[in-house]
Design a protein around this nucleic acid. Structure first.
Lengths: 209, 209, 209, 209
DNA sequence: CATGAATGAGTTTTCATTCAT
DNA sequence: CATGAATGAAAACTCATTCAT
């Protein structure tokens, strides 16, 4: 073993690279999680890179290996969580389902996510009511909701859904949940099965004809 | 009144004191306005006291004559704007009005405020989705909404309003407007008379039995 | 009584001026006392003019009527208290007294002052171990001690007192009391009649032949 | 050792780490020295972090790598110098020495230190007559003097030393030197071999029976 | 004389980012 | 890749002093 590099064969190299990648992913995730946690608890204005690094158990300098700067870190975090959120929203959904059935599925998916993943939801809610995310990135995060808009359009054609702007539909049918989630986080309100059904009824009543 | 010194009578003194008080109020207001504007445009994390001072055309040190620290400045701003908002909400309202009529009045009041005073609304929205305001202060800001909760209770007794938590009612009937206001601010959506009426219909449908 | 000024006769004017002077002296004293108290408790570095003013119940601007600036305030305070201290030191002293008798009198005077006027003593002690007083002013404060130096010189001529520098005599015979006073202030040591006499004995032993 | 990269062996790494540690220690010392110098010349109230940094040739931010805040910097400086002082005081001392011999040794050690290390002594003197050091830290700094107290106790048992509080003994036998050191620093007094011996005689006379 | 309000210059401290290793 | 140390720039806040009244 004169030379360190030559002593490892190809498959070992690949394994090693993968191990590194895995390790890197772990660090990247630790950083994203730390950021979310700090922004949630202290606010964006009190989530310094040094604290993020400490919480993720890496050096501050390491952050800049994974992200070009703080804004990039926040942006990537936002996009990942937004995507996870939308993925959950459409779990089990198929475009051939009847409109109400489909909406019900999506609504309960979203409700389930928002109430179970309180931290992620609260983070997204902050991002959407703040200048911490650039408009461009926010747009990017929204595009995954298209299937819901398509569903509503179908519902409108079928005469089931009110013929109003999708923003109005979203405001009433979906966004209201954010407020309830906030209240739950602040421990002012507590969801149970019954109140969830009541909320769904209100959502549906607000958009159906 | 031959002599200037001897001519200063009581009423003049009072006028002079009032002038000073007025001037002070002006400075305080300039500071509050500057803060709102900066927080709105740059976010809480990029609204330093130095910029606030510059915008209000005073020295940074002057801020501390009117507010004990930055948090106090933000808190006072929040409370004042929240109060202005709730005052507008109940303009023309009387407890003897029929439930739907009363709700309609309040809803349109709020809609009118949120869409006309976009800056104030956006600021309040940020405050309510952020850690920048302490929970205690937020509670303080909420208490003026009681008449609406009372109205809903009456509606529930009369069998007009759904028998669900006031948080659910608020989420659907009122808070949805915040989302639409956000969209309007981002120039993704534009309200007109027709869409306003549609939104009201959705609000009412969501809470009525 | 057409004219305010002319309506007062000479004796009234004098009384009035004296009243003003008295009132002024009161304010000046209040300021000096407030300064001493703040410097003692917070240190010179945390005794701002604003706090001094508040404690003396005057406006910050008023301080500048009585003192040209903060340094002047401190200097005058130092000089006044130093003078009060030396005056007490020589109470009852006459140059014709025998040396030991005279020294005993002065020593007990000083001890009495240092232990009774703990605050004043602690303040002077700070001043003498700090750059807060300019050397020039400190010199000024020292000159009232001359009679003690003269006494020692007499004692040396009479062969009673060691023939060493007056600084050495002062260091041992007088300054040691400052240390004991400090300990008393910090509640590490408590003087009584017996220990006072012991201290005197040590003082006398250190300088007598 | 053909290849630079592969040549870094363990001992070199250790050397390198030590070099870093050494460099860090240097910076820390530069900061402590700068602080002492500035506090001595300008007073605690005029020794801003910015000046300290400049004098130590580092950025102000760097100070906070080594000390948590200004108070901590001062505390650590005080403790280090106090310890150096007491270490010097007991150089060559052994508990079996005869009382007077031992006292003489310690006394001259202290005198030597106080007169040679004028800056350190003046700094400690300021700290002990000021609120800039917290009482707790001052206590910490004092505990190293215990051997002297033990020596005195032995002297008292042997009937050599006056049976008075150790505070009195310290006030006369040791603290008097501080005053003389102050005078020397202010160039009002100049020690030489003869006057040093005179001072020792005064010290001994004040505490011996 | 007396003052409340105002402020420029300065204070301590923090922070996003870089760099030598 | 990873890092601890370093830092310029800026943050929040303070303070001695002034000035219009």
């Amino acid at each position: 073993m004169e030379n360190k590099a030559s002593s490892t064969n190809k498959s070992e190299v690949i394994t090693s690279i993968m191990a590194i990648r895995e390790k890197s992913k772990e660090k990247r995730n630790a950083l994203l999680n730390a950021t979310l946690s700090l922004v949630n608890n202290n606010g964006f204005h009190d989530a310094p890179m040094s604290k993020i690094a400490k919480m993720a158990k890496v050096s501050p300098a390491t952050i800049y290996i994974y992200f070009v700067n703080k804004q990039d870190l926040i942006n990537q975090l936002y996009l990942e969580r937004k995507q996870a959120y939308t993925e959950r929203a459409f779990e089990g959904y198929s475009e051939v389902m009847p409109v109400k059935k489909a909406f019900e599925l999506i609504w309960y998916n979203i409700a389930d996510y928002k109430l179970k993943e309180l931290e992620e939801s609260w983070f997204l809610s902050q991002c959407d009511n703040t200048t911490m995310i650039e408009e461009k990135v926010r747009q990017e995060g929204l595009k995954h909701l298209q299937p819901l808009l398509d569903l509503w359009e179908r519902g409108q054609k079928e005469g089931i859904i009110k013929d109003v702007s999708p923003y109005v539909l979203y405001a009433y049918a979906i966004n209201s949940l954010s407020f309830l989630m906030n209240m739950q986080k602040r421990e002012l309100y507590q969801f149970d099965k019954k109140s969830l059904d009541e909320a769904f009824q209100a959502a549906w009543d607000s958009i159906r004809i």
